[in-house]
Design a protein around this nucleic acid. Structure first.
Length: 293
DNA sequence: ATGGCTGTTATCCG
DNA sequence: CCGGATAACAGCCA
């Protein structure tokens, strides 16, 4: 469930379940996702640790730990990323370990599980993934002026630019289309050609789209093990109960090719940019004709 | 059933 | 530097 809102909702779910708990035995089933750590190294580092905190940066979760076995030990952190299909949850220790489990550990009568079917996620002591990240969407420094200086030399389509995490982090393929729709910006617009008005609108739309998604996810009874049905990126309910969340119109453009725009009824278009699908309304997101700046 | 799609991002190349 | 293509992988859908 992986763009910023889903990670944020997961964080809020996991934090009370993990903080203060001690990691007993750790088992690694997909060591590749621990790169560049070795399975043995990470297991040794984690076993016996107490989890002091969990936090989020961009689409990453950060686990803060200290080794309680030793008398003297420095706090350290582990970085987790869900990739496309990662899930993290706590289950009873007698429940079956899911098929694509990357690793799991025991905490008393419970088990923490990180599973990832496609295996694009990460779980590692290597924090270098944090280095190149742009601002958090709600960072006060994320301003229209910041957008201007970051983008003015760029010829890349704004949609593609939003995906690379260096401008602002946390926006993925779904919310990039959604935020551009809300801002009324054609996703093909070269990033350096946005008008001042568009930059302000884009900043605001990114924030509001992500915030609404967090609020939406927080309002659902989610099934973090992901066995149930899906509502956007959020899993909820169980195999039997399709808890039918009311908002099947969560997205205005994403995955709505050919369907009428919810604002103007024009059929939504789908195009490919940087090998990813982009959805937009050609009427609500017109090509800008001025030469900007 | 075969091919084309899917929430990400690291890396390689021009 | 920048930007485009590719790769890592499993599953679902037409």
């Amino acid at each position: 469930m992986p763009e910023l809102p889903e990670v944020e909702v997961l964080l809020r779910h996991l934090k009370p379940l993990l903080t203060g708990r001690t990691i007993q035995s750790v088992h690694v089933l997909k060591p590749r996702l621990l790169r560049p750590d070795s399975a043995e190294g990470l297991v040794k580092a984690l076993e016996g640790c107490t989890l002091h905190d969990v936090s989020r940066r961009a689409k990453y979760l950060l686990f803060s730990l200290t080794q309680t076995k030793k008398a003297v030990s420095k706090p350290f952190r582990v970085l987790g990323h869900l990739g496309m299909t990662g899930r993290m949850f706590v289950q009873e220790e007698n429940a079956p370990v899911p098929k694509h489990t990357v690793l799991h550990w025991r905490m008393g009568a419970e088990r923490f599980v990180f599973e990832d079917t496609r295996g694009f996620g990460r779980f590692t002591l290597d924090l270098s993934g944090l280095e190149a990240l742009g601002l958090e969407p709600w960072d006060p420094e994320f301003t229209p002026d910041k957008l201007k200086t970051e983008l003015h030399r760029s010829t890349q389509a704004i949609k593609v630019k939003l995906l690379d995490q260096s401008l602002v982090c946390g926006v993925g393929n779904i919310y990039a289309s959604e935020a551009l729709f809300r801002a009324g910006i054609d996703p093909r617009t070269p990033a350096g050609r946005l008008t001042p008005t568009q930059r302000t609108s884009l900043r605001d739309s990114i924030r509001s789209c992500l915030q609404e998604a967090i609020d939406f996810g927080s309002s659902l009874a989610l099934d973090f093990a992901g066995r149930g049905s899906r509502e956007g990126l959020f899993y909820y309910g169980t195999q039997e109960g399709s808890a039918t969340a009311q908002s099947h119109e969560r997205f205005h453009v994403y995955d709505r090719e050919g369907q009428p725009c919810l604002r103007c009824k024009t059929p939504i278009q789908r195009i490919t940019q940087a090998a990813r699908s982009t959805f937009f309304c050609s009427r609500c997101q017109p090509k800008q004709r001025s030469k900007a700046d």
